[in-house]
């Protein structure tokens, strides 16, 4: 499964978001640090879910890291996150 699909699946399962977009932006970083052949290194996540209500910015990001799992988070080079409740 593509990494973007894995991210999508895990976040969908964890937060039942009303909006969720996962974009693989790896190609934008071709030639820069962290780029690797085949891509799947840079992702941008936009997520909106009730589950984030009342959580601080850091807590929201931590919850997302948690849902994705340590292995996935450390295997990709960059993960941009935009969260709303």
């Amino acid at each position: 499964m593509a990494v973007a699909d894995q991210i999508h699946e895990r976040l969908d399962a964890a937060f039942s978001p009303r909006e969720l977009r996962v974009v693989d932006e790896s190609e934008k970083h071709r030639g820069h640090a962290g780029y690797r052949e085949g891509g799947e290194s840079h992702f941008q996540v936009t997520i909106a879910a009730e589950a984030f209500k009342g959580m601080s910015r850091i807590a929201r990001h931590r919850a997302i890291h948690e849902a994705l799992g340590k292995e996935l988070v450390t295997s990709i080079h960059a993960l941009g996150i935009s969260v709303s409740d």
Partner: peptide, 25 residues
């Protein structure tokens, strides 16, 4: 910080956040 990415900003010993959070703040 139990935070998987860099950069990380600290103010007075407290972890504030990474790039997305600092940009938003």
């Amino acid at each position: 910080s139990d935070w998987p990415t860099i950069p990380q900003l600290y103010v007075k010993g407290e972890f504030v956040g990474g790039c997305d959070i600092i940009t938003e703040m």
